[in-house]
Amino acid sequence: MIERITLIGRHGCELLESLGRAGIFLLQSMFARPSREGVRLWLVQMHMVGVMSLAIILVSGLFIGMVLALQGYTILVDFGAEQALGQMVSLSLLRELAPVVAALLFAGRAGSALTAEIGLMKATEQLSSMEMIGVDPLRRIVAPRLWAGFVSLPLLTIGFSVVGVWGGHLVGVEWLGVFEGSYWGNMQESVGFIDDVGNGLLKSLVFALVITWIAVFQGYDLVPTSEGISRATTRTVVYSSLAVLGLDFVLTAVMFGGLS
């Protein structure tokens, strides 16, 4: 019995310790003095993290918008309210689906890649040798990746929403014959720029922070073996997906649930 309690205590201590390490790590790399080549390194990472994720995000956004329109139409038409299709598609995209689905895809596409890349650098002693050359890997390797992640995901989320709304238009208006004016008109009537677009972006900014933080820290803190890298990559995807879904609930409650 005492052993059990000790075990729980040990796990608790380890958890706190790694949370503390992760926090210090985040602050040190975010506020690291940017290196001389900082902008160029950031650009390279924007390419790796952002541009390379664009295709999967846009294609998913298109399909989700189309499916939303299709499903929404079959329900709304029963109430004779198919004019509200635009409203339904755009609100579900802006408030929920775009930030969350884009974040989940981003965790799978970019987060795991970040973990594996940094982990491999650690396993092959590249991080150590960089330290010994007198270059802080937090500044040189980690910081550009963190900032690229923070900037990319909100941009990708915007892309997801735009393509999704267009996909909804494609199915709803072009195919199912909802009147075009009421598709856009109802949408504009009900969507608020700050309330819906702004809050959606705020969500995706929070998700971006959490995902890149988890991904980069898992890579930096892993056990430098091939098993360690595979475990850390898995952990990145699992932890960030759970964090995104959990935080989404909290943020939704605060933003739209009247808790504020």
């Binding site: 755009s90 802006l94 735009v162 709304v165 949408m187 720029f193």
Partner: peptide
Amino acid sequence: FLGLKVSG
């Protein structure tokens, strides 16, 4: 686009 076209 989201500002002008979607949220009017």
